[in-house]
Design a binder for these strands. Sequence first.
DNA 1: CTTATATGATACCGTTTGGTTTCATGTCAA
DNA 2: TTGACATGAAACCAAACGGTATCATATAAG
Lengths: 105, 105
Amino acid sequence: MTIQDHVFKALADPTRRSILLLLAEGDRTVGEVASRFDMTRPAVAKHLKVLGDGGLVSVEARGRERINRLNPEPLADVARWVARFEVFWDQRLAALKKEVETTHD
Amino acid sequence: MTIQDHVFKALADPTRRSILLLLAEGDRTVGEVASRFDMTRPAVAKHLKVLGDGGLVSVEARGRERINRLNPEPLADVARWVARFEVFWDQRLAALKKEVETTHD
DNA sequence: CTTATATGATACCGTTTGGTTTCATGTCAA
DNA sequence: TTGACATGAAACCAAACGGTATCATATAAG
């Protein structure tokens, strides 16, 4: 699997997307992240691992804690991928606009 | 599940992302799409269904054929979601630039 | 030293996913 | 009408997923 595959897969789960938003507010230990969700710590730890596989989260061990940090760069790949379709929805909006205008005549 | 969940889930599979790129070139029947992939037609039909659930593909029946058309609007939601993190990678780039400059002194 | 804490690792489980094969149905064509 | 063809639908299967409980380990604290 490519890196891009890992990133898209990481984003597929709503819990993982929430974790990214949480880490956008600041670094968090595994326990701190887990306390925000209605599931056990191991479950959250697994999600963090998937995010790590996608390069979206990096971990720094500090004593017995592990600090999780958002690493947003791979999201740029997603943005680039999606951007390839922007021309299409622009076209659609233009077509819709035109249709509305002609219908309006 | 929200629409956004469906869209992110639809994008999680590389075959489905390829299908979207293919449909960006033009409308295709189920068979035409399936012929481009190394899997059976029912498998591709299932992927098209998932894409349809995410609102990314619409279908128009014409005779015994079913024309699949790209519907890119939901991708705008993805773009918006990802855009929330752009400030972070801008910050990172700025930090990196600064570090390089100070190291350079 | 002993104890509490933060975490990783492992085993396990039910559901979903991504694929297949097979069959039924509707439509086009000879 | 008869046959070929495009598709949907259903049953099935192995693997992946998202979760749990449990245990081992390393570090912090009393």
